[in-house]
Simulated scan of single mutants.
Amino acid sequence: MTAPTSETTLLIWYCQSCRKSCKVQPPNEDPACTCKTPVPALRPTEVTVLHTPKARPMHALSDEEGRIRALARKGTKVRVTFEAEVVDAMQWSSAGDRGLSFTVRTSDRRRFTFNPQLEGLYIEGIPQEDG
C-alpha cells in the first residue's frame, strides 16, 4: 500500500543575474539568490513540490498487543474488569432521584468513582482469604 502524497504549488521568481530563486511564494523556503540587488523575472515559474509522509517504523506485535489493538476500534463492545478496594460509599439524592456511588482504589493507588445504577455496570464482592 502506498502512502498518500500531498502537493504544494510554489511561485518562484528567478534572478536574471545569477539564475537562482530570489523570491518564493508562499514563503516556506529561503531564496537562493545572494545578489546585492536581485533582478527578478517579470513572471514567476510555477513549481509543484510533492510531499511524501515519512514511513513509520514497523515492529512486531506480541499476541496480547495485537488482541488489544483489535479491540481499540470505535463501536467494539468490551468488558473491563479490575480488582479494587472500596474507599468510600456515598448515598445521594437529587431532584427525586437517589442512588449510591462507590469510590474505589486499585493496587496502583488510582481512584475511580462508580454509580452502580449505570446500565452495563456490575460490581461483585471478592471472597476474603483466610490467612
Rank of each mutant, 00 (worst) to 15 (best):
S94L: 10
G75T: 13
M58G: 15
L50W: 03
W92V: 06
K54E: 11
K23Q: 15
K20F: 07
P31C: 06
V104G: 03
E64G: 08
S62E: 07
P53K: 05
T113H: 01
K23C: 12
K54C: 03
R56E: 12
A60W: 06
P53L: 01
N28K: 05
E129K: 08
R69G: 07
V24L: 02
K20Y: 09
D97F: 05
Q117I: 11
L121S: 11
T2V: 15
T103G: 04
R69K: 08
R110M: 11
L71W: 03
G96K: 08
L50P: 05
T48H: 01
I68D: 10
K23F: 07
R19D: 11
K77Y: 03
T9N: 02
R79H: 11
I12E: 13
A60E: 15
V47Y: 00
L10G: 07
P116C: 14
P127C: 05
V104A: 00
D88E: 14
I123F: 03
V47P: 00
E46C: 08
H51P: 01
Q128R: 12
F114T: 05
C33T: 01
T103N: 05
P27V: 09
E46G: 03
D130G: 06
Q128E: 14
W13F: 01
Q16A: 02
K77R: 12
E64R: 09
P38N: 01
T52N: 01
P57W: 04
L50Q: 00
G120Y: 05
P57R: 14
L118V: 12
S93M: 12
K74Y: 11
S107R: 09
S94N: 14
R105G: 10
T8R: 02
P4K: 14
L118H: 12
F82I: 03
A84S: 08
L100N: 01
A32M: 13
G125Q: 11
R111L: 10
M90F: 10
P38D: 06
K20C: 10
M90W: 07
P53Q: 04
T48S: 02
D30K: 15
W13T: 04
L10D: 06
T81V: 14
N115V: 15
R67M: 06
L10V: 08
G125R: 12
E7K: 02
T48F: 02
V39H: 13
G96I: 15
I68K: 04
K77G: 06
L10Y: 06
T34W: 09
R110P: 02
T2C: 07
D88K: 15
H51D: 04
G120S: 03
F82K: 09
